[in-house]
Design a binder for these strands. Structure first.
Lengths: 173, 173
DNA sequence: TTTTAATGTAATCAG
DNA sequence: CTGATTACATTAAT
């Protein structure tokens, strides 16, 4: 099979390095020589997949996968839409950064309520929220990430204050 | 063990949601009831750290062995050092997560050069790189893992674009 | 200026 | 190992 052949070649290289780091960095070998070497790189995913041989992978997928694929497609469509609707941001806009989402206060309220109970919502809850709040699931995941970071930051700060206060109290004695 | 207990509780909640969103929003359950439920929130950084409870993880090694054991011991010492040297990050830091390594651009350049030739460097090359770049071998292994993931991701995306284009071309006919 | 959505990537964990 | 997810530092929009 093609793959195992290739990986053998690699293993060989590993054991008795044809490419030392010096060579790779071009300290020891010039580029012309490098092009002459016929070493197949081991990049399995570079090859086209022949539909059949991946079906087993898609089955065992964790909680996401089918829903994730759909999500990514939607996201992509949305990205394309952004290119066409070029009002505001036409200039402002550089290499494909998503326009900042402005959550409504109603959306924030719901998100905060959920966060209070569970700051690590799984895919199920996130998708339900997405549907209910008319947001992409990705926006929600990011929101929770940022929210956790914020909570952590505030926690850190309050701890810092407590330590400071403890020191102050010590001085008073 | 405390940590796994907590995360199991969470996973339970995720799989078979005791808290539906309706309940969380109080559409289905009033706050008094909510307070009676004894669900531990998963807020790791809130808890005090109980120094060592993660050592079992280091055992399960696979293909590597003598060098790996030595390496793991060093890593462990390093972790302990982090607990004692409590300047910066004392608060920042919860349950023994390694502080994020910031690679220098010079280090990245070398790593990328090697990656271009061989994206699956064996232990030999990794250790040489570690010595040369003044990094732990583990950092390098992780870097290659993440780098492969990145390459694969970008490859997936470009494939997606090509499929999309193919569809567009079909329409044109 | 402050807050925070978005991004990139190192670290972690399950399979 | 991969794949998914998380934490964290940074950037940039409001």
């Amino acid at each position: 099979m093609a793959i195992s052949t290739v990986s053998c070649q690699i293993r060989q290289v590993d054991a008795r390095p044809v490419f030392t780091i010096d060579r790779i960095l071009g300290l020891d070998l010039d580029r012309q020589e490098l092009r002459n070497v016929s070493l197949k790189l081991y990049r399995p995913w570079t090859e086209l997949e022949t539909t059949q041989q991946r079906s087993h992978i898609t089955v065992k997928g964790s909680s996401k996968s089918s829903s994730e694929i759909k999500r990514k497609e939607e996201e992509h469509k949305l990205k394309c839409k952004h290119f066409t609707e070029s009002h505001r941001r036409t200039l402002n806009w550089y290499i494909g950064r998503r326009p900042r989402t402005a959550f409504s206060s109603a959306q924030i309220e719901v998100l905060e309520s959920v966060f209070l109970i569970n700051s690590y919502p799984g895919i199920g809850i996130r998708e339900e929220l997405a549907q209910r709040l008319q947001l992409e699931e990705d926006r929600i995941q990011i929101w929770f990430q940022n929210r956790r970071a914020k909570l952590k930051r505030s926690h850190r700060e309050s701890q810092f204050l407590m330590v400071k206060k403890a020191f102050a109290d010590l001085k008073d004695k």
